[in-house]
Each structure stands twice: as structure tokens, then as C-alpha cells.
Amino acid sequence: MTIKQIERLRKGAITLLMLAISILFLLPFLWMLSASFKIEADVFTYPIQWIPAKWHIIENYKEVWIGKFPFYKYYWNTVKVTVLTTVTSAFVSALAAYGFSKINFAASKYLFIIVLATYMIPHQAILVPQFILYRQIGFFDSHLGLILLSSFSVLGTFMLRQFFMGVHNEYIESAKIDGAGHWRIFWQIAFPLVRPAVATYAILRFIWTWNDYQNPLIFLRTDKLYTIQLAMQKFTTINGEFYSLIMAAAVSAILPLLIVFIIGQKSVIEGIALGGVKG
């Protein structure tokens, strides 16, 4: 055997080993998917039936989506909250990032440090005052309040600022000479140049908001305002013993993210690697 062949053989062997390990990461998801297709009596049969003996897909998903505890409502709530949070947060962050990197004003440096300093504050350390504030100003138990909570992202500002700093100042200077104000320069020159970075941030924010459990738990009270993460937990409490239905709900909650992730895979992975950001 040549050295190259040995090398290839080794690579193949390691690939096989890694495949085996990766099963450990996918198995719970496969189990979830398979359980969601089964009749309740078959969920816990052992050895595990990976391919259901009796299929019950339509009945399970119908019960979850339009049954006693209809998921379509919570889905709509989640889509609304997630999309609006993502858009607002990306916009506010981009504005601030441009202001901190491309507009030359005296207070800029200090203001940026102040904003950055708040990043160290763990969210749970301010939950109680936020809760009290929301009760006082009437934002408690509303989607608007929930959206505003995650709309002012220091992380987004920091991330996008790095990219705005990469935009050459000559573009901005020459636009200024042509008489353009900062608003036009932002929209027509700078923003299009950093669009990939904004997209990366938006996808991450989308995933985090979609998966957020803690904020809806604390800041929402009325059933009909629930997001799916909250609804899913409630669903579990109500349907305690109906694991096939619970798994159908879990699959429904994960599926949109899986799609977003597969479409934006490169952006997500790059964004995470780049900023080393964590939700």
C-alpha cells in the first residue's frame, strides 16, 4: 500500500467512528420524529420500533395543530414575535453600529463603552426590575413588550460595528461631497455593503428568539399570547401521558428552525465562529 492509500484508509476509519458518535447527537431527534408518528401504545415498546408498526401521523399532528390546544395560534404568535424582534433588533443595531463607526462625534467613544459595558450584565440580574417596570407601564403580558425586550442588542451593535468599520471612509467622504446626508449614506452605501453581516446576525437573532423560553415565561400571562416554547410546556402538563402528541408538538417547534438553519447554514456557522456568540 502506498502512503496515500494508508492515509485514505485512516481517514475512512475515522469518518466511520465519527459517524457512530454523531448518531448519539441525532438519535434523540430521530426518536422524537418516530414517536410523533406512532400510536400512543407503541411509543415505549422495547426494542424501539424506529419505523412505526402502526402509522398515526395525520391523527397526531391534526390533534396538535387544531385540537383542544391548537398549535396554529401559538405558531402565529411565535412567527409574529420572532420576525418583528429580528427586524427591529437588526435595524436598531445597524443604526447604532453605523453611528458608532462612521459618524465622528465627541461623545461617540464614551457612549460606545457605556453600551458595551451593559453586555456584562446577565439578563437574569435585571429580570425583577424589568418585570416591575413592565407592570407599571403596561407592557406586561403583551407581544410589544416581549419584542422590545430583545430589540436592543449590544451584541448585534458590536458585531455590526466591526463590519461598518471595514467600509472604506472614501465612499462616505465622496458621498458627503456630493451632498448626501448620513441617512442616505447609511441606506444607499453602507448598509448594502454590510448586508451579509446583517443577515448573519438576523438569522442568529431569529433562532434565539424562536427558542426563547425564559422571557415569554416571565412576561406573558394570557394563554392566547403564548409562544410555542411556552405552549409546548403547557401542552406537556396537560397531555402528560400522551407522548406521541408531545413529540409531534416538539417536531413542529423544531422544524422551522431546521429549515432556517439549513438555508442559512453558512451564515450561522460563520457568525458563531466569528463572534463566538452565544444566545
Binding site: A96, F100, V115
Partner: peptide
């Protein structure tokens, strides 16, 4: 410039 700067970073500052 200062006014423009404050307008751009304003929403973020108020939020934070």
C-alpha cells in the same frame, strides 16, 4: 455631525 450621531445611536441608547 454630533446631532446625526446622536440620532443614529439614540434608539439603542434609550433602549439600553
Amino acid at each position: 455631525e454630533t446631532i446625526a450621531g446622536l440620532l443614529f445611536v439614540g434608539p439603542m441608547l434609550i433602549g439600553v
